[in-house]
Amino acid sequence: MRTTIRVDVSPSSASWPMYRALVGVGVLCGLLIVSVYLLTQPVIARNEAHALQQAVLEVLPGAVVSASFALTAEGGFRRAGDGDDPQRLVHAAYTSRGQLVGVAIEGRAMGYQDVIRILYGYAPQRQRVVGMRVLASRETPGLGDRIEKDPDFLANFTALDVTVTADGLSIEHPVQAVKQGAKSAPWEIDGISGATISSAAVAGILRASTAQWIPLVYRGRAVFVRSGAVNEGG
């Protein structure tokens, strides 16, 4: 804004048109923005809910409907309402007959380029991670982004062992990344050679996130199962 401002000789008479112009334009713009916001907001909210539902159903094969739950301060779960912190939400998914398929949990951490966000599905009955999807990443195309579509890598997450210890407080075998082809135990993740850091980052997210969430979800699993039955009844 390198404009020379000419000082008017009679400021009192000249300031009125300026106020009028600024306030007028401000009101006009305000009306425009608010009306567009009100018009588009329901559509945007629906789009977002739909995208989340798609992702949840994808990581929990066999499910057709999902519901969100929020972590309470006591470490239990309740049905999520508006205004719950998205970082404290998990999403339970059910079959058409209201049976619990599993719970989808989001995790995030720094990857090779930027933060990677993933969503993974956990089946409490089998105590396994049954699906994983990368929600957002800026990994190098052709190398790091293989964490999103490499079938061998994704196969790691169809039956990943996250059994909870007898006291229900931690995971018996924390998730571990190993070299490509070296996977020997059900809690290990085969890395991708050529995308070492990205695949290790995904394993790291899972390791941290499962350690934090799985014991909580496992102990609170009755809430999720009950909700499914209620849904069916209603």
């Binding site: 720094m110 990857g111 090779y112 380029q113 190098t140 850091i197 290790a200 980052a201």
Partner: peptide
Amino acid sequence: FMGFAGLGA
């Protein structure tokens, strides 16, 4: 500068 990638991981 791409060589710096991975530093933050």
